[in-house]
Design a protein around this nucleic acid. Sequence first.
DNA 1: CATTTATTGCGAATAAGTTGCAATAATACA
DNA 2: TGTATTATTGCAACTTATTCGCAATAAATG
Lengths: 128, 128
Amino acid sequence: MNRRNTPTKEAVLNLLSNSKKALSQDAIEKQLDIKINRATIYRVLNRFCEDDMVHRIVAEDGKQYFAICKKCEKPEDVQYHFHFRCLSCDTIECLQVPVNYAVPNGYQVQSANCVLTGTCSDCSQAVG
Amino acid sequence: MNRRNTPTKEAVLNLLSNSKKALSQDAIEKQLDIKINRATIYRVLNRFCEDDMVHRIVAEDGKQYFAICKKCEKPEDVQYHFHFRCLSCDTIECLQVPVNYAVPNGYQVQSANCVLTGTCSDCSQAVG
DNA sequence: CATTTATTGCGAATAAGTTGCAATAATACA
DNA sequence: TGTATTATTGCAACTTATTCGCAATAAATG
């Protein structure tokens, strides 16, 4: 199952690389210049996740969001970080805030999905 | 919009009260003795959440799970806590582990949804 | 250039959750 | 205790996110 390079793959990866926010399939489809099928976008994203190039966030709305962030490049340092969902501008971003936890004996953690929801700094300021 | 007491409401509340795990609508429907419509269960659960009797967790599977836990009784102390999703026994439970975070300036947090996924203590031991 | 097979598009399927509407039943009050 | 008010319920239909089967397309390899 060797991976192949396709325009689709490149386009999605570019978009994610240049985005400061985590993107949903929906958002990706809208922002792409080229028309790519919904199912294809999901498949490309799922492959990225399998290959650990991208991480997946599930927000309180139950939707999946995808992000590449600088911290992902040094996973030893900050394996899991908080995400922030802004209800005002409806975006999700990676925070430079590590997730610290100490689970009770016997629990084995394989992954963490931590999302804080509220108003981001941009939108908080916009009020004043 | 005063709340009324109904058998449905009581049954769901009882189930949640006696459950050590967070339950999905699906699980609730199955565990109930009486047959209650899917939509009704959701409406009852949503009302519980509005009234702060129950809290809602969204897991990595994108599904909603509902729980009453002791910590919820003293929300000042431990407002947010981690949840644990066990892939082995397919359950979600509240951990007595508080969520600590320090968001950057300007961010306003309204809620937190933090789920750790892996193998719970029961299932970890089951291997040996 | 030909072969292999990963990738794509399409349509349909699945699953979670919500909504409109009419019927039912819990509460308040005469 | 009977009646009016309206919260709650069941049903069916709808929405939205995500996946899947399948045939067609197009990377990679040699």
